[in-house]
Simulated scan of single mutants.
Amino acid sequence: MSTPPEPAGGATWFETLDEDVVYDGFSTVVRETVSLPGGGEMQREVVRHDDAVAVVPVLDDGRIVLLRQYRQPLRRYVLEIPAGKMDVGGETPEEVAHRELAEEIGQDARELIHLVSFANSAGWTTETTHVYLGRGVHPVARPDGFEPEAEEADMEVVTLDADDAVALAHSGDLIDAKTLVGLLMAAPHLRAT
């Protein structure tokens, strides 16, 4: 893999001079004052958010397990791969993958293959999503004490043939970023099984 080219004018340095927490809730919004390499300052609002893990779960017959979940910002249901935040201290991405599969679809994967980690929106949030392919997906009990709430209580589990799921990604019928990334990165592995 090649190294990305340096920015025009050589190496640059941006230094955070000050930050002010504007909002602290599900996410934290911080207004940062940053020095510019050529002099001067700029302000940027940065959303600090937990990283996330997403899994493309593949059943033994080759079908992909997806979820139809309501998403308030879009005011609609969205077809997605199972995913969740890394919001339990000390959990590795793999542990989060297993937990989320059990919570959301009542399944687990015998094998997890890391496909990619990507910055969700590098211009405004710190969140990174770690995407895995899950093979050997099999039923398991939901974790003790887990009760689906809010949108999760209304999720519908959907299974699709792998080729059909990837075709939906290519056709533009899927709009969720982690699902698009996951299915397109998983596609070569799906053909190999």
Rank of each mutant, 00 (worst) to 15 (best):
V46R: 11
V46G: 06
V47C: 12
R48V: 15
R48Q: 12
H49S: 13
D50W: 13
D51L: 04
D51E: 11
A52N: 10
V53Y: 00
V55R: 00
V55L: 05
P57N: 09
V58D: 00
D60P: 13
D61A: 12
D61R: 04
L66E: 00
R68Y: 02
Q69L: 15
Y70E: 07
Y70P: 06
R71I: 15
R75W: 11
R76H: 11
R76K: 15
Y77T: 14
Y77V: 13
L79M: 10
I81E: 03
I81M: 09
I81K: 00
V88E: 10
G89R: 07
G89K: 04
E91Y: 13
T92G: 07
T92H: 01
V96A: 02
V96S: 02
V96D: 00
A97W: 04
A97Q: 04
H98W: 12
R99V: 13
E100P: 01
E100R: 02
E100S: 01
A102S: 08
D108G: 10
A109S: 09
A109L: 08
R110S: 15
R110C: 11
E111D: 14
I113R: 10
L115W: 03
S117M: 07
F118G: 08
A119F: 06
N120H: 12
T125L: 10
T126W: 01
T126E: 06
E127F: 06
T129W: 10
H130T: 15
H130Y: 07
H130M: 07
H130L: 08
H130R: 10
H130P: 08
Y132D: 05
G136L: 13
A141K: 03
A141Q: 05
G145W: 05
F146E: 06
E147P: 03
P148E: 05
P148D: 07
E149M: 13
E151I: 09
E152D: 15
A153Y: 00
E156I: 14
V157N: 01
T159F: 00
D163P: 00
A165R: 00
A165I: 10
V166A: 01
A167P: 05
L168W: 00
L168E: 01
A169W: 00
H170G: 11
H170D: 12
S171H: 02
D173W: 02
L174I: 14
L174G: 03
I175L: 13
I175W: 05
K178C: 10
L180H: 02
L180G: 06
